[in-house]
């Protein structure tokens, strides 16, 4: 898979939103660098670059972890979308009145 220290694949940006891809990339930064590169088709290229002397096993593991993180980030994005407004509401409420434990 890694003849050199690079691995390219295509990614469906309908399924995975770019924000989630970027966050997942940030999380795996210690194992590899992940970049989104434009391509001729609708699906951009996902380019993994590994540090020098990364073994094939380690590289495969890094890619696996990236996709795992990507799935989590998708779920997180979903959770954020649904709850961000509520969080603001709760915070506004929290600081809008005197507190119970105030002495």
């Amino acid at each position: 898979m890694t003849a050199d220290d690079r691995f390219d694949t295509r990614i469906d940006v309908q399924t995975y939103r770019p924000a989630a891809i970027k966050k997942a990339a940030y999380r795996v930064a210690e194992r590899c660098t992940v970049r989104l590169e434009p391509s001729d088709s609708d699906e951009p290229i996902l380019r993994f670059t590994f540090p020098p002397r990364t073994s094939d096993t380690a590289a495969a593991e890094a890619v696996r972890v990236f996709y795992q993180e990507l799935l989590d980030e998708e779920l997180r994005a979903q959770l954020h979308e649904e709850t961000d407004a509520l969080r603001s509401l709760i915070l506004a409420h929290a600081f809008s009145r005197t507190d119970l434990l105030q002495r």
């Binding site: 509520l86 509401l89 709760i90 915070l91 409420h93 929290a94 600081f95 507190d99 119970l100 434990l101 105030q102």
Partner: peptide, 14 residues
């Protein structure tokens, strides 16, 4: 639940 969450948040921040 929203009242209680707000209260707990405030207590931590205080």
């Amino acid at each position: 639940a929203l009242d209680l969450l707000a209260l707990k948040y405030r207590s931590r921040a205080d």
